[in-house]
Amino acid sequence: MGDASRFERFMERLHRGEKIEATDWMPDEYRQLLLKLIHMHAVSEIMGALPEKEWVPKAPTLKRKLAIMAKVQDEMGHGQLLLRVAEDLAAPLGKTREDLVTDVITGRVKFHNVFHMEAPTWADAGVIGWLVDGAAIINQAALLDTSYGPYARVLKRICAEESFHMQHGENIILALARGTEEQRAMLQDAVNRWWESLLFFFGPVEVTDAARRMIEYKIRTKTNEELRQQFFNKYVPRIRSLGLTIPDPELRYDEQEKRWIYTQPDWKKFGEIVRENKGPKSRERIALRRFAHMDQRWVRAALARYSEPEFVG
């Protein structure tokens, strides 16, 4: 069969709402777009565990320590599940798991802007759990209907675990919101610190070529702006109900336009942070990742020497 008619048949499958499996023929462009998306997603889960990991030894109570540790474990687990999906997509391109894992150390794959930022107080740990996870959950829930079967299945599992992350984050900030003046001020500071990063997290307002292609391929079904608007819908009223303010004097819901008007984040600044790993914590966290990966190389090498025994029936 010619490539053109294969492509046509592939697109027809997508339009019928069929899911694509790893063993199916797929256009190169589809594979590349998916791989880029899932690779960045996987690496961001792993890098995303690092800001919260910093709070494991400093969590205020034993229960909080157990809970945040459980969450860090989940995020690492999400990274593992996603890497497996990416690995199968990358194999025909001659890329291995080792490549996918080391790409973040060598700067060949980016990770989300929010994970380049500092988390100086316990309120930051809370706001990460509440709002950063909240934003990530909106993104991931929107991908549940993706056309790629293996990604859809893994996302279902990830989202189930994210439900705990939502409640966990809310619980921390609700405690602080009911706390002393000092605690409330700490919470407000953290919201101020994270707000702009959170808006950038959803990506540019304009639909880039890559984003348009992903929508055509039904890899994703929503635009960045639709998801950012969802975030406002869900979180602005909740932030305000706690008596907190949002550091954007322009922010309002326009009844006519049926959408939130807001001050644009500094696209240039965050773009550089992500592309060039220039955020306040980028270097430190990549160094930690490199250390973890390299320092344990010998363990992986030793384990790989295990050879499968003869199976006995």
Binding site: I138, A141, C159, E170, A177, K222, K234, P237, R238, S241
Partner: peptide
């Protein structure tokens, strides 16, 4: 959340709105 006149948010709410 009710003390602040709001509701807890659940994953299902988000999936539904999307």
């Amino acid at each position: 959340w009710r003390m602040f006149k709001e509701k807890a948010l659940h994953l299902e709410d988000i999936v539904r709105s999307l």
